[in-house]
Amino acid sequence: MDMVVNATSLGRSGLYDWLIQRASALVLLAYAVCILGSLLFTQDLDYASWRAQFGAPAMQIFSLIALLSLCAHAWIGIWTVTTDYLNEAHLGRAGTAIRLFTQGVCALLTLIYLLWGVRIFWGG
């Protein structure tokens, strides 16, 4: 049982999942503050200036880190919630199948958003 558990959680141990969750939350907070700041303090905000801001190499790197943090954070959260509620205790015999299906769909979506995001930020 523990093998399956470890194969699907991201950091493969409770400690690493927990650390990733905290660190990614901090990155996302910093990123949100940064975006909010630029929204508030950029004069004449338009498409061109917005695009230029995100095109700057520092911002590209920061965005990528934030995107990775978002995906890791989301996946650990989803994994935790699905193992709490989508199980045999709540759903009966089909619990494990429903959980694996839901986790599969969420993992795929997370991956798609990640790749799509990379394309948006780095695709030029």
Partner: peptide, 8 residues
């Protein structure tokens, strides 16, 4: 250290 024992 596993994801359940303490970290739940």
């Amino acid at each position: 250290d596993d994801p359940f024992s303490v970290f739940r």
